[in-house]
Amino acid sequence: MEFETSVLGAPKLGDVITFRSGGLFEPPPGGKLVSVRKSQKEATRQRVLDAARDLFEAQGYEETTVREIARKAEVAVGSVFTTFASKGDILSQVMADRLEELYGELDRVIPHLRGGVADRLRSLFAIHFAFETRRTKLFLAHIAAAYDWTLSPSTRPYGRNQRLRQVVRDCLAEGVARGEVSADQDLDVVVDALMAIYAWTYRLAAWEGADAAEMSAVFDRQVGLLAQGFQPRV
């Protein structure tokens, strides 16, 4: 079955369905005791993450308790806490795993991006919209975590993920190299603005039921306005 390669081997980047379809995480047959124990621990961790992701998405982050996560994952509450410091930590890890998938998609797409810097940015974020609207509630909880000061320093709520910012920043830096972005523009300012506008576009999904295409359409216009601001003055 496909999940064996994706769980026990290297997961196929961007392969969302096979990556999620697991649930039966048997230790490899014939392994030594230590490696069995190690892989059991890994299996427990993965079961917790899968259960948490499904519960956060189905009923919301706030409404989900660690006890419920443990029950769904069929592990003891105590063993959840041996792996994760808090519910916020679990959310962070769920999102980090999801981002791996997203980066996989981005890595495949970026070499094929064409057009000016604004269009490239639009394509990058369109991939984000399409990806995150598969599990909108989960993403909203991720943004909300940025406003939760009880999180431990190890958690990475939305906006504190350097890799995500880097993809956007690289795209702008290429724009500078091609003369489409003003050389004296502070790129971090643009990255910050894009990240802010992108995140808040999700209110359209959360409260007006917009889909990925509708959100992309609004965001595309905003990128256009921002581009007017960062392109070189003629």
């Binding site: 300012v189 802010a196 601001g229 960062f230």
Partner: peptide, 30 residues
């Protein structure tokens, strides 16, 4: 979006203003 910096990360008012000023500029420039 600057509120996490303002109320959780302890940014000074001056730092927030500097960041906001740059954001306002780039958004209005066009």
């Amino acid at each position: 979006a600057n509120y996490p910096e303002a109320i959780f990360l302890g940014w000074s008012l001056e730092a927030l203003q500097a960041k906001a000023r740059d954001q306002i500029r780039v958004i209005l420039a066009g």
